[in-house]
């Protein structure tokens, strides 16, 4: 079994880790970097709770090895707020009651961040298509869509 020295750059900060090859990026973020906002709902790629941004695009952190993320810019939910100021998506999720238990929320936030960074004027049908990447068991999704739309509007201002 191979052990590797890896440096992960997460939210602009370098984390030096020693880990086995089999450690997923999600586990490394959680256990190695102490960033437990990235959640694991299935560990086989379906639920999207582990969604993080890798060089600006959303990926399933459970379906990448930590060793593969060396050299990439990783963004997680912990990096969204600027101090006391929430990211417009975080604020919109609160305002529109887009979370109940909040377990899926970090994954949805990162997915939505990537969506709006790619296309701030994304049409509703395309938003639904992209948001269908992740599962939420509590909200029935309606308020998640509302929140993303509201954040898109707020970010356009």
């Amino acid at each position: 079994m191979s052990e590797h020295a890896v440096t992960l750059r997460v939210n602009g900060i370098a984390h030096r880790l020693q880990l086995p090859a089999r450690r997923s990026l999600a586990d490394a973020l959680r256990d190695g970097c102490g960033l437990t906002g990235t959640h694991l709902g299935c560990e086989h790629g379906v639920c999207g709770a582990c969604t993080v941004l890798l060089d600006g695009v959303p990926v399933r952190a459970c379906l990448m090895l930590a060793v593969q993320a060396e050299g990439a810019e990783i963004r997680t939910v912990e990096g969204l707020a600027q101090g006391a100021t929430l990211h417009p998506l975080q604020q919109a999720f609160i305002d529109h009651h887009a979370l109940q238990c909040g377990f899926c929320t970090p994954g949805f936030l990162m997915l939505a961040v990537a969506m709006l960074e790619e296309d701030p004027d994304m049409p509703e049908a395309e938003m639904v298509h992209r948001l269908s990447s992740n599962l939420c068991r509590c909200t029935g999704y309606a308020n998640i869509l509302k929140a993303v739309q509201a954040a898109a509007a707020a970010m356009a201002r």
């Binding site: 379906l63 997915l111 990447s133 992740n134």
Partner: peptide, 12 residues
């Protein structure tokens, strides 16, 4: 391509 899995999976 739009039918393959989900958007984040298509990135990898």
């Amino acid at each position: 391509a739009r039918h393959i899995a989900h958007w984040p999976i298509r990135q990898r």
